[in-house]
Amino acid sequence: MTSERVPTVFLVDDHALIRAGLRAELSGHVNVIGEADEVAAAIEIILERSPDVVLLDVHMPDGGGLAVLRAVNKEQPGVKFLALSVSDAAEDVIAVVRAGARGYVTKNIEGPELVEAIVRTAAGDAVFSRRLAGFVLDAFTNRSQDGLSAPSLDPELDQLTPREIEVLRLIARGYSYRDIAEQLSIAIKTVESHVSAVLRKLQLSNRYQLTNWATERHLL
């Protein structure tokens, strides 16, 4: 098991109400060491305080979460990002995850689940929301109707194993990691490693179809 230490968390969101809500939800479970409501301030304070996990709002003025992520990653690659978004902005989320966020959750997530996701991110595991799982299934299994099959440089990165597909499908159906482990008769740790492998493929894959897909979905 990972260390007993409570992870330190930094909140980035331009809505004061949401930051307050998150603080209330998280207090007692994780150590919230600060918050910011704009990109420049966020970068500065994060680099100064080096939290374990940054809870990052995707939609913000001046470049949004992506700008924070890029700037911090350059200086301190050890800081892990968990993207937080309303569920309908797929292309922003994909961009953030591709830029290095360890996962993505929606804002209607329940308190205990959010805590679990933060702990998981701090431990270096990936956190998939239902939408992200659906997106990866769609993009990687080539079921999109547009017929766009991007040329890939590394076929291994563009293939999901049957087990990974199974895990993603269960996530998309709304199962928690614990439910998935039970359903597939495997350890939770194994579920986590499958999901981490998928996240790595998502981040390293050369398929530009990924962004295409997100843009298209947004236009619908």
């Binding site: 239902r130 939408r131 659906g134 999109s144 109707q145």
Partner: peptide
């Protein structure tokens, strides 16, 4: 109630 639909592929 909030309904969240995820679609993979379309016909």
């Amino acid at each position: 109630i909030s309904v969240d639909a995820i679609m993979v592929g379309d016909i």
